[in-house]
Nucleic acid binder design. Structure first.
Lengths: 233, 233
DNA sequence: GAATCTATTGGGGGATTCCCGTAGTTTGGC
DNA sequence: GCCAAACTACGGGAATCCCCCAATAGATTC
């Protein structure tokens, strides 16, 4: 996974940073962050109101690989209050570091999903008492959900980023062969079915794995199904 | 695609119908409808406040195959006002029929996506002037977005739906290991992660394949994702 | 015409999966 | 208490997958 800090791009679009700042002000938050990711394409990109030092540290340390807020988002639909995250090793690591940069572990993340396996996350943090936080969240969560959809939709439909993040396209042969693999056929079977060498089948499977950023065929099949390139066989 | 009317099931859960009715009342709508679909698994299920006659007609005619509100939802993240739908052949067909059953073509559909490729749609309609409708939508859309997430999350995690769709149930260990396989881990990797022998991992994968009636692990992963037992890793 | 991409086939070899067993412990239900 | 099922663990051997390499033909692009 590679991190792309959208604010450093040449076609930098300051509207998003501005947008996040406004979110902070309007909803009385310390920080707001948007992250978009596409596991199949293997990319993460984002806008944050955090300090540049934290951004640099986060990227240097590869914290995106263990960030529990990112992991959570891969399986949740509903907003997740950080207090409900599992207090594991990764959590300790990320939030201990975050604390050193003045970022509290009191926050909320709202995931939204797009049609191409893309995931958008809108997070907001605030340092205050637990009671105060609960009350705040209750009063702004529906607005934040709406904003999360809005910003993710906006980012994904913008030309510059969508080209980077769009789900990979398999060649018709790759798609065909992956479909047979999902149907439980071995490489030899597929070769016989398509009247080609099982060697060739393996080549196509490999390139399909590469395009889907998958380490194994099972993972490739899973991702292809997840983004609708093939169907469960 | 097969349609399942959740309200006709023996384990019928009237809370959803009740919920939709309340949505109508609270937000001054004529009708509200929830539809959940999983293109990968090829299923559609739903709750509606429409008349039984319309439900029957809809299913008999197979209107779900051409319903533009369903099609739209497969590629959109943001809410879609029906006035923005393409006025094509399918639109004419569905909404002409709908009109005969007292359902207006003024409505809005809010799509939400889950981690398994599942899509939830919350729709609401109201017969009134264009100005009135615009004003109404503006004032309730954020609430509806929030409700859409809520109901879809609820339906997808409810026991009844998963039982209804006849899913083989994997043991927690099998599910866990299959999830790691979908994440691209080898049997040896998984054994190391879970601190068990890679032989044992293979046993669990085998029984998972048997339960899913799959010939290979890729097929098992695909099916498990298709029916929502695991998510693409 | 050259370069690039895709589809195709092949060899060799190591890594991995998969199927055939056996067997002890735990867990939950009857 | 008993039984079925799940979970754990181990091993041999065959099948399969996966990765390295190279090579040809056709289509498209520059």
């Amino acid at each position: 996974m590679e991190i792309v800090d959208l604010s450093t791009l040449p076609q930098k679009d300051t509207r998003y940073d501005e947008f996040l700042k406004q979110v902070c002000e309007k909803y009385e938050m310390d920080h707001a962050a948007y992250a978009g990711m596409n596991p199949a394409a293997g990319s993460i990109h984002g806008h944050v109101t955090y300090s540049d030092e934290w951004k640099a540290h986060y990227q240097e340390q590869g914290l995106h690989l263990i960030d529990p807020t990112l992991h959570m988002s891969q399986r949740s639909i509903a907003p997740v209050d950080w207090s409900r995250l599992e207090r594991g090793k990764d959590f300790q690591r990320v939030f201990r570091d975050a604390h050193d940069f003045g970022i509290p572990d009191q926050g909320i993340t709202i995931p939204v999903r797009g049609p191409y396996g893309d995931i958008g996350l809108l997070s907001a943090t605030r340092e205050c008492s637990r009671e105060e936080w609960k009350k705040l969240v209750g009063s702004v969560i529906t607005d934040l959900q709406s904003l999360a959809v809005h910003i993710h939709d906006h980012v994904m439909t913008s030309e510059s980023i969508s080209r980077m993040l769009y789900h990979p396209t398999l060649s018709s042969r790759e798609q065909e062969i992956l479909q047979w693999a999902a149907a439980g056929k071995s490489q030899q079977d597929i070769g016989d079915i398509l009247s080609i060498s099982h060697r060739t089948v393996e080549v196509h499977l490999r390139s399909a794995r590469e395009k889907l950023n998958a380490l194994t065929t099972p993972q490739a099949v899973g991702r292809a199904i997840g983004i609708g390139l093939i169907y469960p066989g």
